[in-house]
Design a protein around this nucleic acid. Structure first.
Length: 264
DNA sequence: AACAGGACCAACCGCCGAATG
DNA sequence: CCATTCGGCGGTTGGTCCTGT
Protein backbone atom coordinates (compact mmCIF):
# COMPACT_ATOMS: atom_id res chain seq x y z
CA UNK A 1 0.00 0.00 0.00
CA UNK A 2 1.52 3.22 -1.10
CA UNK A 3 1.52 6.47 0.63
CA UNK A 4 -1.63 8.46 0.38
CA UNK A 5 -1.55 11.62 -1.63
CA UNK A 6 -1.09 14.79 0.35
CA UNK A 7 -4.55 15.86 -0.60
CA UNK A 8 -7.53 14.84 -2.62
CA UNK A 9 -6.42 15.72 -6.09
CA UNK A 10 -9.68 15.19 -7.87
CA UNK A 11 -11.12 18.47 -9.01
CA UNK A 12 -8.20 20.48 -7.83
CA UNK A 13 -6.79 23.22 -9.95
CA UNK A 14 -3.22 23.12 -11.12
CA UNK A 15 -0.96 25.43 -12.97
CA UNK A 16 -0.37 29.15 -12.66
CA UNK A 17 -2.16 31.04 -9.96
CA UNK A 18 -4.60 33.75 -10.86
CA UNK A 19 -4.62 37.06 -9.06
CA UNK A 20 -8.02 36.08 -7.72
CA UNK A 21 -6.53 33.03 -6.06
CA UNK A 22 -3.64 35.07 -4.77
CA UNK A 23 -6.08 37.47 -3.19
CA UNK A 24 -7.94 34.68 -1.49
CA UNK A 25 -4.80 33.13 -0.13
CA UNK A 26 -3.34 36.39 1.09
CA UNK A 27 -6.56 37.46 2.67
CA UNK A 28 -6.85 34.14 4.41
CA UNK A 29 -3.35 34.25 5.80
CA UNK A 30 -3.64 37.86 6.77
CA UNK A 31 -6.80 37.00 8.61
CA UNK A 32 -5.76 33.73 10.16
CA UNK A 33 -2.04 33.77 10.22
CA UNK A 34 0.17 31.00 9.06
CA UNK A 35 -0.33 28.82 12.04
CA UNK A 36 -3.15 26.83 10.57
CA UNK A 37 -2.17 23.61 8.85
CA UNK A 38 -1.70 24.02 5.16
CA UNK A 39 -3.86 21.08 4.36
CA UNK A 40 -6.85 22.98 5.65
CA UNK A 41 -5.97 26.27 4.04
CA UNK A 42 -7.46 25.73 0.59
CA UNK A 43 -10.79 24.64 2.02
CA UNK A 44 -10.98 27.48 4.47
CA UNK A 45 -9.75 30.01 1.98
CA UNK A 46 -12.11 28.81 -0.70
CA UNK A 47 -9.43 27.66 -3.05
CA UNK A 48 -9.48 24.66 -5.30
CA UNK A 49 -5.86 23.99 -4.65
CA UNK A 50 -3.77 21.48 -2.84
CA UNK A 51 -2.47 22.68 0.51
CA UNK A 52 0.99 22.07 -0.67
CA UNK A 53 0.42 24.29 -3.63
CA UNK A 54 -0.85 27.04 -1.33
CA UNK A 55 2.19 26.76 0.88
CA UNK A 56 4.49 26.93 -2.11
CA UNK A 57 2.70 29.89 -3.57
CA UNK A 58 2.90 31.71 -0.29
CA UNK A 59 6.49 30.95 0.57
CA UNK A 60 7.86 31.42 -2.91
CA UNK A 61 5.82 34.28 -4.17
CA UNK A 62 3.36 35.99 -1.88
CA UNK A 63 5.23 36.34 1.36
CA UNK A 64 5.62 40.04 2.01
CA UNK A 65 9.21 39.79 3.12
CA UNK A 66 10.38 38.52 -0.21
CA UNK A 67 12.85 40.41 -2.27
CA UNK A 68 12.35 40.25 -5.96
CA UNK A 69 14.67 40.71 -8.81
CA UNK A 70 18.08 39.47 -9.68
CA UNK A 71 20.48 38.54 -6.98
CA UNK A 72 23.00 41.21 -6.24
CA UNK A 73 26.68 40.51 -6.74
CA UNK A 74 27.00 40.13 -3.02
CA UNK A 75 24.17 37.65 -2.83
CA UNK A 76 25.50 35.71 -5.76
CA UNK A 77 28.88 35.51 -4.17
CA UNK A 78 27.30 34.29 -0.98
CA UNK A 79 25.37 31.64 -2.82
CA UNK A 80 28.54 30.35 -4.41
CA UNK A 81 30.31 30.41 -1.12
CA UNK A 82 27.48 28.69 0.70
CA UNK A 83 27.03 26.14 -2.04
CA UNK A 84 30.67 25.24 -1.76
CA UNK A 85 30.06 24.35 1.83
CA UNK A 86 26.51 23.08 1.86
CA UNK A 87 26.02 21.64 -1.58
CA UNK A 88 22.53 21.62 -3.03
CA UNK A 89 20.86 22.38 0.24
CA UNK A 90 18.98 25.30 -1.15
CA UNK A 91 16.82 25.96 1.84
CA UNK A 92 19.88 26.21 4.06
CA UNK A 93 21.47 28.54 1.59
CA UNK A 94 18.30 30.56 1.35
CA UNK A 95 18.16 30.93 5.10
CA UNK A 96 21.31 33.00 4.87
CA UNK A 97 19.89 35.28 2.23
CA UNK A 98 17.04 37.24 3.73
CA UNK A 99 14.15 37.68 1.40
CA UNK A 100 15.25 34.99 -0.98
CA UNK A 101 13.60 31.63 -1.41
CA UNK A 102 15.21 28.30 -1.98
CA UNK A 103 13.40 28.03 -5.26
CA UNK A 104 14.70 31.36 -6.42
CA UNK A 105 18.24 30.53 -5.46
CA UNK A 106 18.00 27.12 -7.02
CA UNK A 107 16.75 28.64 -10.25
CA UNK A 108 19.41 31.29 -10.21
CA UNK A 109 22.04 28.69 -9.60
CA UNK A 110 20.91 26.51 -12.45
CA UNK A 111 20.45 29.31 -14.94
CA UNK A 112 23.18 31.79 -14.09
CA UNK A 113 25.78 30.74 -11.63
CA UNK A 114 26.41 27.29 -13.04
CA UNK A 115 27.23 28.78 -16.38
CA UNK A 116 29.37 31.49 -14.91
CA UNK A 117 31.42 29.00 -12.95
CA UNK A 118 31.83 26.75 -15.94
CA UNK A 119 33.00 29.71 -17.96
CA UNK A 120 35.55 30.39 -15.28
CA UNK A 121 36.68 26.82 -15.49
CA UNK A 122 35.19 25.77 -12.22
CA UNK A 123 33.09 22.72 -11.68
CA UNK A 124 29.84 23.99 -10.17
CA UNK A 125 29.33 20.84 -8.17
CA UNK A 126 32.74 20.44 -6.64
CA UNK A 127 33.85 24.05 -6.88
CA UNK A 128 37.16 22.77 -8.06
CA UNK A 129 38.84 23.73 -11.28
CA UNK A 130 37.70 21.61 -14.15
CA UNK A 131 41.20 21.20 -15.53
CA UNK A 132 42.81 17.91 -14.68
CA UNK A 133 46.05 19.42 -13.57
CA UNK A 134 45.94 20.01 -9.88
CA UNK A 135 48.95 22.20 -9.44
CA UNK A 136 48.44 24.93 -11.91
CA UNK A 137 44.79 25.50 -11.26
CA UNK A 138 45.04 28.13 -8.62
CA UNK A 139 45.42 30.88 -11.12
CA UNK A 140 42.17 29.87 -12.77
CA UNK A 141 40.17 30.85 -9.79
CA UNK A 142 38.26 34.04 -9.87
CA UNK A 143 39.64 36.46 -7.40
CA UNK A 144 36.77 36.32 -4.95
CA UNK A 145 36.82 32.56 -4.85
CA UNK A 146 40.50 32.68 -4.38
CA UNK A 147 40.01 34.58 -1.24
CA UNK A 148 36.93 33.03 0.22
CA UNK A 149 37.11 29.38 -0.49
CA UNK A 150 40.13 27.42 -1.18
CA UNK A 151 39.18 25.25 -4.11
CA UNK A 152 40.00 22.09 -2.37
CA UNK A 153 38.24 22.83 0.79
CA UNK A 154 34.54 22.75 0.64
CA UNK A 155 34.00 22.10 4.28
CA UNK A 156 33.11 18.57 5.05
CA UNK A 157 29.91 19.43 6.73
CA UNK A 158 29.36 15.90 7.89
CA UNK A 159 32.18 16.44 10.28
CA UNK A 160 31.08 19.76 11.52
CA UNK A 161 28.33 20.57 13.92
CA UNK A 162 25.72 22.70 12.28
CA UNK A 163 26.68 23.71 8.79
CA UNK A 164 24.77 26.87 9.21
CA UNK A 165 26.98 27.82 12.09
CA UNK A 166 30.03 27.17 10.08
CA UNK A 167 28.82 29.49 7.44
CA UNK A 168 27.80 32.30 9.64
CA UNK A 169 31.04 32.17 11.41
CA UNK A 170 33.10 32.30 8.29
CA UNK A 171 30.98 34.34 6.00
CA UNK A 172 30.15 37.92 6.46
CA UNK A 173 26.43 38.30 6.41
CA UNK A 174 25.36 41.32 4.56
CA UNK A 175 24.73 43.85 7.27
CA UNK A 176 21.28 44.77 6.24
CA UNK A 177 19.88 43.57 2.97
CA UNK A 178 20.65 46.65 1.10
CA UNK A 179 19.03 47.47 -2.15
CA UNK A 180 15.58 46.39 -1.18
CA UNK A 181 14.01 49.39 -2.70
CA UNK A 182 15.87 49.16 -5.91
CA UNK A 183 15.44 45.45 -6.18
CA UNK A 184 11.84 45.13 -5.39
CA UNK A 185 10.05 48.02 -6.82
CA UNK A 186 11.76 47.82 -10.12
CA UNK A 187 11.02 44.24 -10.81
CA UNK A 188 7.94 43.20 -9.01
CA UNK A 189 4.76 42.52 -10.78
CA UNK A 190 1.89 40.90 -9.08
CA UNK A 191 -0.12 37.97 -10.34
CA UNK A 192 0.87 35.07 -12.39
CA UNK A 193 2.86 36.48 -15.19
CA UNK A 194 5.96 37.92 -13.68
CA UNK A 195 7.59 38.23 -17.00
CA UNK A 196 4.77 40.07 -18.54
CA UNK A 197 6.66 43.22 -17.81
CA UNK A 198 3.96 45.04 -15.99
CA UNK A 199 3.96 48.74 -16.25
CA UNK A 200 5.84 50.40 -13.49
CA UNK A 201 2.98 52.72 -12.95
CA UNK A 202 1.21 49.87 -11.23
CA UNK A 203 3.77 49.80 -8.51
CA UNK A 204 3.17 51.46 -5.23
CA UNK A 205 5.76 53.63 -3.68
CA UNK A 206 6.45 52.61 -0.16
CA UNK A 207 6.67 56.17 1.00
CA UNK A 208 3.09 56.67 0.03
CA UNK A 209 1.79 53.86 2.11
CA UNK A 210 0.57 53.88 5.64
CA UNK A 211 0.99 50.84 7.75
CA UNK A 212 -0.41 49.81 11.04
CA UNK A 213 2.11 49.11 13.73
CA UNK A 214 2.55 45.39 13.90
CA UNK A 215 4.85 42.48 13.50
CA UNK A 216 4.21 39.39 11.49
CA UNK A 217 3.71 36.28 13.47
CA UNK A 218 5.54 33.76 11.43
CA UNK A 219 5.64 30.12 12.22
CA UNK A 220 8.44 29.57 9.77
CA UNK A 221 11.64 28.35 11.16
CA UNK A 222 13.69 31.43 11.44
CA UNK A 223 15.79 30.03 14.18
CA UNK A 224 18.74 29.93 11.89
CA UNK A 225 18.57 33.60 11.38
CA UNK A 226 19.90 36.10 13.73
CA UNK A 227 17.30 38.44 14.90
CA UNK A 228 18.59 41.13 12.72
CA UNK A 229 18.92 39.00 9.68
CA UNK A 230 15.43 39.33 8.48
CA UNK A 231 13.37 42.38 8.89
CA UNK A 232 9.82 41.46 8.30
CA UNK A 233 7.72 44.15 6.84
CA UNK A 234 10.62 46.10 5.60
CA UNK A 235 10.34 48.84 3.08
CA UNK A 236 8.52 47.66 0.02
CA UNK A 237 7.13 44.66 1.74
CA UNK A 238 3.73 45.54 0.49
CA UNK A 239 4.63 46.59 -2.95
CA UNK A 240 3.14 43.41 -4.24
CA UNK A 241 -0.12 43.67 -2.44
CA UNK A 242 -1.65 46.38 -4.43
CA UNK A 243 -4.63 44.25 -5.14
CA UNK A 244 -5.41 43.60 -1.52
CA UNK A 245 -7.32 46.76 -1.15
CA UNK A 246 -8.36 47.58 -4.63
CA UNK A 247 -7.18 50.87 -5.94
CA UNK A 248 -8.28 52.43 -9.11
CA UNK A 249 -7.16 55.48 -10.95
CA UNK A 250 -3.72 55.24 -9.50
CA UNK A 251 -5.04 55.82 -6.06
CA UNK A 252 -2.73 54.55 -3.40
CA UNK A 253 -4.39 52.02 -1.13
CA UNK A 254 -4.36 52.47 2.57
CA UNK A 255 -4.02 49.29 4.48
CA UNK A 256 -6.57 48.38 7.00
CA UNK A 257 -5.46 49.01 10.50
CA UNK A 258 -7.47 46.22 11.88
CA UNK A 259 -5.67 43.32 10.39
CA UNK A 260 -6.47 40.70 12.89
CA UNK A 261 -4.93 37.63 14.29
CA UNK A 262 -1.57 36.69 13.01
CA UNK A 263 -0.61 40.27 13.36
CA UNK A 264 0.16 41.97 16.59
C1' DA B 1 7.63 38.94 -40.20
C1' DA B 2 8.13 34.25 -38.96
C1' DC B 3 10.31 30.70 -36.94
C1' DA B 4 13.59 28.07 -33.86
C1' DG B 5 16.18 27.55 -30.03
C1' DG B 6 17.57 29.17 -25.64
C1' DA B 7 16.73 31.33 -21.24
C1' DC B 8 14.08 32.01 -17.43
C1' DC B 9 11.15 30.88 -13.63
C1' DA B 10 6.76 29.38 -11.38
C1' DA B 11 4.86 25.31 -10.15
C1' DC B 12 4.59 20.32 -9.67
C1' DC B 13 6.21 15.76 -8.08
C1' DG B 14 7.96 12.47 -5.12
C1' DC B 15 10.65 11.56 -1.27
C1' DC B 16 12.13 12.23 3.50
C1' DG B 17 12.06 13.27 8.34
C1' DA B 18 9.63 15.07 12.30
C1' DA B 19 5.58 14.99 14.87
C1' DT B 20 1.69 12.74 16.65
C1' DG B 21 -1.51 9.22 18.29
C1' DC C 1 7.70 0.85 18.88
C1' DC C 2 4.70 1.33 14.75
C1' DA C 3 1.64 3.61 11.51
C1' DT C 4 0.04 7.72 9.80
C1' DT C 5 0.06 12.56 8.67
C1' DC C 6 2.09 16.71 7.42
C1' DG C 7 5.50 20.14 6.23
C1' DG C 8 9.58 20.80 3.88
C1' DC C 9 13.07 19.87 0.51
C1' DG C 10 15.41 19.12 -3.93
C1' DG C 11 14.83 17.76 -8.64
C1' DT C 12 12.32 18.38 -12.66
C1' DT C 13 8.89 20.06 -15.90
C1' DG C 14 6.42 23.05 -18.83
C1' DG C 15 4.88 27.56 -20.22
C1' DT C 16 6.28 32.09 -21.57
C1' DC C 17 9.44 35.42 -23.06
C1' DC C 18 13.64 36.73 -25.48
C1' DT C 19 17.04 36.64 -29.03
C1' DG C 20 19.14 35.32 -33.14
C1' DT C 21 18.59 33.87 -37.90
Amino acid sequence: MGRQPCCEKVGLKKGPWTSEEDKKLINFIVTNGQSCCWRAVPKLAGLLRCGKSCRLRWTNYLRPDLKRGLLSDFEEKMVIDLHAQLGNRWSKIASHLPGRTDNEIKNHWNTHIKKKLKKMGIDPQTHKPISISTDSHQSNLPSHLDMEMSPSSPVNIAETKDPAEVITSTTAIEPKTPPLNSCVSSTWSSSTSPSSSSTNSNLIKFDDLEFPDFEWVCSNDTSNNNDNDIGFWEDDDFSSWDFLVGHEDGEVPIFQESWPCGLI
